[in-house]
């Protein structure tokens, strides 16, 4: 604590800092809303239900819609794209009707799944009938389509330049895009607010570092205050 006056940086000690922190009043309800927002957006239905019982915070949307959304998401993650398509169309037909890029990516994922299961003929037919017209409508789709069809050209797809398409992360990517579109259609933000708050915390600390020494939070998980240097 208390360095000499010669120091260029102002130092704020732990006691002073904690006192200042406790002066900032954050309403409990706001904290609870933040938690609920995270649970709902990330799709933790059970946790959201329990949290609702415990805290009394009302979720921003009907929890049953989370279940629907999670079923759709799971279907893509496990490779049942057609199933996911039907479910999302039941949920709200406008989602895929007004979002050509998402629709293309789901069709592309369907093609990938056909190739993965070795149904070459079916895959070719599907590419020609369903995907080729989308490629004609949009140049960017055409390039992605060509890349996907290239999977058929390699015997050892795992070592091909397009191997990433068969990766599980490709399914995750498609599933997340679909998840985000459903959330948007329900007038909900695509991302939970908590991570962006953490980003703001990190940014604010970096800004502050240039001017003062203060008890910093380095361990974001436990939020422990480190003594100022």
């Amino acid at each position: 604590m208390g360095k000499g006056e010669s120091s260029s940086k102002k130092v704020i000690g732990r006691e002073d800092w904690e006192k200042r922190l406790s002066d900032v009043k954050i309403r409990k309800e706001d904290m609870n809303k933040l938690v609920m927002n995270y649970l709902v957006t990330e799709g933790y239905v059970d946790a959201a239900e329990k949290f609702q019982l415990e805290s009394g915070v009302k979720p921003e949307i009907d929890l049953s819609t989370i279940t629907d959304r999670m079923t759709v998401r799971k279907a893509v993650q496990s490779g049942n794209v057609e199933d996911a398509l039907e479910k999302v169309n039941d949920l709200n037909p406008e989602i895929l009707d007004t979002n050509p890029q998402l629709f293309f990516h789901l069709q592309q994922q369907r093609l990938i799944e056909l190739i993965r299961s070795g149904k070459v003929e079916e895959a070719l037919e599907f590419a020609q009938e369903e995907l080729a017209p989308r490629g004609e409508e949009n140049h960017q789709f055409l390039e992605e389509l060509e890349r996907t069809v290239a999977l058929l050209a390699f015997e050892d797809t795992a070592n091909s330049p397009v191997s990433d398409l068969l990766d599980i992360s490709q399914r995750q990517k498609t599933a997340s895009e679909l998840n985000a579109a459903i959330l948007t259609s329900q007038s909900h933000e695509k991302d939970p607010r908590l991570p962006s708050l953490l980003k703001m915390l990190v940014w604010a600390q970096n800004q502050l570092d240039e001017k003062v020494s203060y008890p910093r939070i380095n361990d974001l998980v436990n939020a422990t205050l480190e003594d100022p240097v």
Partner: peptide, 13 residues
Amino acid sequence: LRDVKNQIIGNRS
């Protein structure tokens, strides 16, 4: 009906 709906959604052609 379901077949028609699921085939036409998002699909111009």
